[in-house]
Design a protein around this nucleic acid. Structure first.
Lengths: 250, 250
DNA sequence: GCTTTGGATTGACCCAGATCAAGGACGCGG
DNA sequence: CCGCGTCCTTGATCTGGGTCAATCCAAAGC
């Protein structure tokens, strides 16, 4: 098996051929309906394909850093990306994990407001920002789609603020696992067990906890028979309903 | 003086006449350049005005609740609004405070994802969502503007996650005061002192703290001569530079 | 004026989660 | 198969901010 196992996240076939800016791999894109390309017909799709570059991102490598000129936007086609912000002393807040279909790079200023890094090996479609903007004026559908994506992300962000500001460690972990499960389901993966490809540290930085607390809380949920830790970073949600209650703050 | 002192927030004249759906108070709108109307010319503005209703919102009254059908969107023209989410047991996260010029009500689902309530007496422009959507297809500029607003809010939300997940109480309060100052400045208000019209409880619910901690931290900053608490909910930021350092996590 | 009332402040104490410190368990390269 | 590095887990202890409980204070009403 290749060095980059993009199937790490649990059995989804590569959505896009791995090479270059070529003709139109987009026509074969299995997750098109999740991306910004969703509203385009085949002809329009071709124009979109003309400005896109397919890139590969090995695990642990940065995609861009906060403050860099925001020259590109991206669509994840496979793998897991984390985006985060840092304080000067190194404290870190992971503001999101992105999966196949997710869009990133939206910046209203001319620099990125956060850093992005591959968690697992990733494939992405890269669009030059300027060119995508041109294309958006020609296809308002795309702009509309982007507005939809943005307002969806806004709702997600607000949910995350509720989590960060008001939930306990136990509630945070339960919410996190259910979120992963929901996202995996959206991508059409089986939902008897969830892939958790990111480290305890990343999870802690996402939930406003330390690694130790994340680990302890996993153990605690395991002992309560609410989850099972399986090999290959898989977690089985044995008592989904009960987890939902915990996550919801009941 | 009238029962609703919309100048509570510090000396800004009412931006919009207080009555009904009338002809076009918009032409006199002093904060147009802050709103979604910014990109429109006078003729387009008139069409916008045709679908808008000016509403008044007394302090403490709800504008809408999470889960309600999202039939309207709003532009604040005067006063302070808070938006928040609740957990079943009553824990609350204020996800934002909105001021003159701010837009609210974006919902990608057909229901509001959060509740909104007036903190001070407020004036707002209310748009029927459906009609605004129609108008957006005719004026892509408005949709573009909305996308800008949304991506801006997204950046703000990420900053807030960093605050909630990783900052100390002291850093949170400093960040909060500076945010209020910055927002007031954007609206063209003097910045020697900031108006803090919301209660300690609201501030706590915004920053993921309790009232007591908010109060204690204010006292602490006061004793360190970084701020002064003035009458009428005004706070003077005596040592802005030092506050910036604290807020930034240095 | 005096009283009421709903924040705001302050104090005493407590606890969830952080910090500090070992181990343990893989997975990987040699 | 062994050794090494990285991540994960677990334990012991500490602490920032929460909780509980009085006041305090200022605006509003009588």
């Amino acid at each position: 098996m290749a060095a980059f196992d993009i199937n790490h996240a649990g059995g989804l076939a590569p959505a896009v051929p791995r090479e270059g800016a070529g003709a139109s791999p987009c026509s074969a894109c299995s997750i098109r309906n999740l991306t910004i390309c969703a509203p385009l017909n085949d002809i329009e799709q071709t124009q979109m394909a003309a400005i896109v570059t397919n890139i590969e991102q090995p695990p642990g490598t940065p995609l861009f850093d906060e403050g860099e000129p925001a020259d590109h936007v991206f669509n994840v086609t496979a793998g897991t990306i984390k985006v985060y912000k840092l304080l000067p002393d190194g404290r870190r807040q992971v503001t999101g994990f992105l999966f196949a279909g997710d869009f990133l790079g939206l910046a209203n200023q001319d620099t990125y407001a956060y850093s992005a890094e591959a968690v697992t090996a990733c494939h992405l479609c890269r669009f030059p920002r300027r060119k995508l903007e041109d294309l958006m004026t020609r296809f308002p559908k795309v702009e509309q789609r982007l507005l939809n994506i943005a307002s969806n992300e806004l709702a997600v962000a607000q949910e995350q603020m509720l989590l960060l500001g008001r939930k306990t460690a136990r509630e945070k972990i339960a919410s996190f696992l259910l979120l992963l499960a929901k996202r995996a389901q959206q991508r059409g993966q089986k939902d008897d067990s969830v892939s958790v490809p990111m480290s305890r540290t990343d999870i802690g930085d996402y939930l406003g906890l330390t690694t130790e607390t994340v680990s302890r809380t996993f153990t605690q949920l395991k002992k309560a028979n609410l989850i099972r830790l399986l090999p290959n970073s898989q977690v089985e949600l044995s008592q989904r309903a009960e987890l939902e209650d915990i996550a919801g703050g009941f």
